[in-house]
Nucleic acid binder design. Structure first.
Lengths: 197, 197
DNA sequence: CCCAGACTAGACAGACCTGTCTGGTACTTT
DNA sequence: AAAGTACCAGACAGGTCTGTCTAGTCTGGG
């Protein structure tokens, strides 16, 4: 999920400087997103963050806790970006603006899909704490899209929001696995079709 | 991808009996899909398949080769199921029938999303052989949906097919991460909206 | 000054990973 | 009968994983 820009850690957390905990989180965010969560070990994270292992385990009790912190941090920044973009345009234009931004985002350098979906794939157990963070994020996103439609006085905001969430997921997967430019080209027609329905 | 039933190995390959190579492939298919590819080691696969390690490496040179075989096998069965379903109804009804089946599929027991998308998430490098199998499958699926629309004499089969692929990806993700029943309920409205557009 | 807490470096345990290799059994084909 | 092949069991190598632990350094507040 996370819908809009600010989902890509690499583009947002380029500073590996600061306090050790922040360095770990920033380094882990980039590595988890670009390489995968299971594919990155603690040793690599602490080496690239320039932090001792004991310091890492002082701030994060387990690797899974770091994964949760990574996703929670990303959610906070995504929600801020969403709110900023949605409030910067007229309510009627907000949906199109948000999905235009999504199309640009998927075509950006280093795009590797939705960090939350990817995390869910790597954590198949729905009872996992990581999945709880993912579920929270997805609930927020669905509600946020619905609120935008309500503000635009759309006649059926609930069902349309659910369809737009589906579309967003499809765009993110297509941009990750297929050709992002082709996905972006198809996106606008699909949005207008669903909003008009 | 893989659109329709027959993507879930567990429901299709319940027989761990047969020749050793088939036992390995059947066991690996279930484990890869339900637990994840990186999360399952060779030792577990050969133990559950009842096969010696040397026999495994006699049939599959590496684990990645087994992953490719798993996806290729799944693609073959998915394509057969797709063709069977598409040819069993009138061309005009084929799209709805296919997406109805998809909705049922996502609500089925043990549904864990699209095996090809999940594999792509676990193999971030687009140059990986696994990603090549995934890309082939996705090309096939997009073409197959387009062909169905052409047979139904849809006025814009190409763009509509691209939108329907997006929708399919969204449905699969939603069914995997959110509530499958809710996704299924939204699906039909989205299909009709996109096909009518 | 003193001391608590954050930090560093790095060894260590115990488990797991992929892939190789040895040695032996059983079946099938020539 | 002989040979080749498919299969079995399991040790082994070399590496990686998470997480713990020891031991020592640095810094800021009282």
């Amino acid at each position: 999920m996370s819908s809009i820009p600010l989902e890509l850690p690499g583009a947002l957390v380029p500073t590996p400087r600061g306090r050790p905990r922040d360095r770990v989180l920033a380094t882990a965010s980039v590595l988890f997103y670009t390489v995968g969560i299971r594919a990155v070990g603690i040793d690599r994270i602490i080496a690239e963050a320039g932090v001792a292992k004991a310091t890492f385990y002082h701030h994060f009790p387990t690797k899974d806790a770091l994964v949760c912190a990574y996703l929670t941090d990303l959610h906070d920044r995504s929600a801020s970006a969403f709110a900023a973009l949605a409030s910067s345009v007229e309510p009627v234009d907000a949906v199109l603006a948000l999905f235009d931004a999504l199309g640009e985002f998927t075509c950006g350098p280093g795009f590797r899909g939705c960090a939350f979906v990817n995390a869910a794939v790597e954590y198949p157990d729905p009872a996992s704490p990581v999945r709880a963070v993912v579920a929270d994020h997805r609930r927020w996103y669905a509600d946020a899209v619905r609120d935008v439609l309500v503000a635009a006085e759309h006649p059926s905001p609930d069902e349309t929001a659910r369809m737009l969430v589906m579309l967003r997921d499809g765009v993110v997967i297509g941009g990750q696995v297929d050709d992002p430019a082709a996905v972006k080209a198809t996106l606008r027609a699909a949005v207008t079709a669903l909003v008009a329905a």
